[in-house]
Write a protein that binds this DNA or RNA. Structure first.
Lengths: 182, 182
DNA sequence: ACCTGAACACCGTTCAAGT
DNA sequence: ACCTGAACACCGTTCAAGT
């Protein structure tokens, strides 16, 4: 059977993630040393499990991201592409509104970790939406997933007062920019 | 006549700004203590003149911003509004390409300092461009300067490899989103 | 009035020593 | 193998003491 040490390590890892989640929920802050202390582990242990801050954040949000990603093909199955993209934007907005503080706190670290140049799962979801619209001729052919992620990145820079008037409204503007012009 | 001390203070101020400019040019970095040292003043002196980092950066870029702002009415005088906006975007792109490192280094601090909620001079320039297009019916009526500044904020998040393929191209996408739909 | 720079605070990161 | 936490590095910011 697996050595007992392995179980220790796994449990530590989970405690670190839980502590990070709690810290973020409490104050949108991601202070690595504080998280290690909350988790009851040494700082070095945190670094062993998560070499970079983004590694930790990616783990914290993995589940949420999975949901967002899984939504794309489902929306595409039931809607025309542009509509699916619009609805997916809605979900992104809902999610970003809740997690906005985090995004700001980590300086787009999450987006970078989840999208980056290698695109990642979020990028795959966007790619699928774009491809469907492109095939249909309703989404312009000269944009890719990274373009869309860059354009909607303003969501991370909205504070509370600005959210309501601008977040969804600007997603509509972006969507219009992505459409083919009649 | 003014006390000699005043001259000292003014000269210090200028040396700080010059040191900041040099530091940014050399490495895109804005380390306050290092700038104070380069300028040959104590850290406290830097803080006396520029209470916040943004105060310092705003001063460093004041001239550049003035040029960008002044261009808006000139472009409007010679071009239809949408064209003027497109050309102004070009200038923003040119400027952002050179200063991009700075923007990234200060985490959108410059934009925030120069635009913020109070909008600022850049916001006024954008407002003029939007108003002209709105009057003509070619720019949608439901966007304001802050919206545009948020949308083009992705420029601060592009690195060197991404600049060429995406910067100008995405400005075109944004512009299409701002147009009224036919 | 204005300036200096030591000192403090804070956070990230490493690594020698332990188990 | 894995963990601990002291120690180091780095920067921003303040403030008592000087001129």
């Amino acid at each position: 059977m697996a050595s007992p040490r392995r179980a220790d390590a796994l449990e530590n890892r989970e405690r670190i993630v839980a502590a990070a989640r709690a810290a973020i929920a409490a104050s949108d802050e991601v202070k690595l040393n504080a998280i290690a202390k909350d988790a009851g582990v040494g700082q070095g242990t945190l670094y062993r499990h998560f070499p970079t801050r983004e590694d930790l954040l990616a783990e914290v949000y993995r589940g949420d991201v999975d949901v967002l990603v899984a939504a794309a093909p489902m929306l595409l199955a039931d809607n025309p592409p542009v509509e699916a993209l619009a609805l997916w934007f809605e979900r992104v907005a809902d999610y970003a509104q809740i997690k906005r503080g985090v995004f700001a706190a980590v300086e787009a670290g999450v987006w970078r970790a989840l999208s980056a140049h290698s695109i990642g799962p979020i990028g795959d979801a966007v790619s699928a939406l774009l491809a469907a619209g492109r095939a249909e001729g309703t989404i312009r052919a000269d944009v890719d997933a990274r373009d869309v992620i860059l354009l909607i990145g303003y969501l991370t820079r909205l504070d509370d007062e600005e959210w309501e008037p601008r977040a969804r409204h600007l997603l509509g503007v972006v969507l219009d920019g992505l459409r083919t012009r009649s």
